[in-house]
């Protein structure tokens, strides 16, 4: 069964995180990614999806296979219209959390993926774009 080009997973409850992770594994496989990278990607998706639930209550994860210069990657966009992050630099620091978490979600996700970009401002929602390239 050929995988679709792009998949959108609405994040509204815990079970949606699981769904996003599974779709992420499928799409990553379609992008030619294999082995332990699949688990790293699933974990990164899990982190950003949890942040959506914890801080914005709802949002979405968009998964797509992209290519550049003949190489493929899985692109993950996590978008919400929640309260946003006032200080993005601080939020990207290990161990910083306004909630009760370990504060590893965002910096951890950045380390798990090859590319990581976050756009957010207080009151303006958050949009995280991450990529993992096939080796």
């Amino acid at each position: 069964m050929p995988a679709p080009e792009a998949v959108r997973v609405a994040i509204q409850r815990d079970a949606d995180i699981v769904a996003a992770r599974q779709r992420g594994r499928e799409m990553a496989t379609a992008a030619g990614i294999s082995g332990s990278d699949l688990t790293l990607i699933a974990t990164a998706i899990s982190e950003v999806a949890r942040n959506i639930l914890a801080y914005a209550r709802e949002g979405e994860i968009l998964l797509s296979v992209e290519s550049r210069d003949g190489r493929c990657c899985l692109q993950v966009i996590a978008a919400d219209e929640g309260p946003g992050i006032a200080d993005v630099e601080l939020a990207m620091r290990d161990g910083y959390s306004t909630g009760k978490s370990l504060g590893l979600g965002l910096p951890g996700a950045r380390r798990l993926m090859d590319e990581f970009d976050i756009v957010s401002a207080a009151g303006a929602g958050t949009r995280i774009t991450m990529r993992k390239w096939a080796r």
């Binding site: 332990s36 590893l104 951890g108 380390r111 798990l112």
Partner: peptide
């Protein structure tokens, strides 16, 4: 603990 899971956790910084 699966090898990939261990790798993820270390990368996450847990």
């Amino acid at each position: 603990l699966a090898a990939e899971v261990a790798q993820s956790l270390v990368t996450l910084g847990v």
